[in-house]
Amino acid sequence: MKRDIILCGVGGQGILSIATVIGYAAVESDLYLKQAEVHGMSQRGGDVQSHFRISDKEIFSDLIPFGGADMIISVEPMESLRYLPYLSQNGWVITNDKPFNNIVNYPELEEIHAQIKKIDNHILINADDIAKEIGSPRSMNMVMIGAAAKHLGIEFSSLIDGIKFIFGKKGEEMVNLNIKALEAGKAFAEKFSK
């Protein structure tokens, strides 16, 4: 079992919370893990990415090879396309469809969506609205994990454990909202793929 995942978005969107939850679930499932992060200047509203690798065998490189990623999980649609050189032939692009527009030359959203739809295996999800609907706008990242859950190679229950571990300190309500977000993302992905 091996999954190479590019996590991406815009600095400040909190992509590392995705890595933390999946990472906890992976370690609890006795998998090896390597996760290269971006710190420093780009965190100020620039494009950010994390190379996230889990495997049942020892992992060597901290970077995913080009053409080797099983999945791109992006919390921003344009950013999902920036890392296409990393995607493998049958890889999945799972991306939030809501743009984070902090540049003057942001392209037309339809063009971005059209490019995403060209990829055979993709899930385009309005994670922001889904998170708002369940009353927890900040749980957008958990909706994204839910949408990717089927392809992660990790038991869904382990992801729930991950959420319990990460958000446990913030109280039961916070844990439940984030689990709800995770489940809502999963439900959307099931419908989307039909």
Partner: peptide, 19 residues
Amino acid sequence: KTEMNLIPEEVKGRPPQFC
């Protein structure tokens, strides 16, 4: 050489900026 997808030209640079 590794064969890889190209980045679509719609993708624009997103430099860091002031908060």
